[in-house]
């Protein structure tokens, strides 16, 4: 749900990073925060436990500059990935414009990826959204780990609708900005379509 303020000439969009626990959602956002020009970003807020597990959400506002005279802002959110935080995940999906699914490439985490993807589909549906038609990008994270499944196998199991796929090593920044740029573009293209 984009917020368009004609009076202040601003567009605000919301992107949510979804995926299983310890998959690298927060790492993605932290990398974006560290590598973004101070003028283009706000404060990074992390509501996390003492052990740095996301408890409620991470939030990072980004200012991308002007488009057709409108300041374009993106609000990036992550959800807590752990299964039992489902109530929080639902809250964070409210008003979402685009979703990045951060999958963990390790073979042992495939079941968790699949469960999280099903959970995303279901939680979106509850809010009246349809994953099949909303801006959506799949990021395959932790490609550097020895136990990572082959790319084709990951795609075979996780590809939802022919969405763009990026291989990533979020801890080193690989694939992080490619993912973000693609989802942001998809959201703006959706905005162009209007209703």
């Amino acid at each position: 749900m984009t917020f368009i303020n004609y009076a202040a000439r601003e567009i605000n969009c919301k992107i949510v990073y979804y995926g299983p626990g310890l998959g690298g959602k927060t790492t993605n956002i932290k990398w974006v925060y560290e590598k973004t020009n101070p003028n283009s970003k706000g404060k990074l807020i992390s509501l996390a436990t003492e052990t740095d597990r996301t408890l409620f959400f991470d939030f990072l506002p980004l200012d991308l500059g002007e488009i057709r005279g409108f300041r374009t802002r993106f609000h990036l959110y992550t959800v807590p990935g752990q299964v039992f935080y489902d109530a929080s995940r639902k809250l964070i999906l409210k008003g979402v414009d685009g979703v990045v699914f951060v999958a963990d490439s390790q073979a042992a985490r495939m079941e968790a990826n699949l469960e999280s993807l099903r959970n995303l589909e279901l939680n979106l549906k509850e809010q009246g959204y349809d994953l099949r038609i909303m801006p959506y990008v799949l990021q395959l994270n932790k490609r550097d780990l020895p136990s990572a499944l082959p790319l084709e196998e990951m795609k075979r199991q996780l590809l939802y609708k022919g969405e763009p796929v990026f291989e990533a090593i979020a801890s080193k920044g690989n694939g992080v900005f490619e993912t973000l740029k693609t989802i942001a573009k998809m959201v703006l293209i959706e905005l162009r379509k209007g209703r």
Binding site: I4, A8, Q127, G128
Partner: peptide
């Protein structure tokens, strides 16, 4: 149906 976008125009903004 997903919630529609929120659009704020000058008139309401001023009010």
């Amino acid at each position: 149906m997903p919630p529609s976008d929120l659009v704020l125009h000058e008139e309401e903004y001023q009010k």
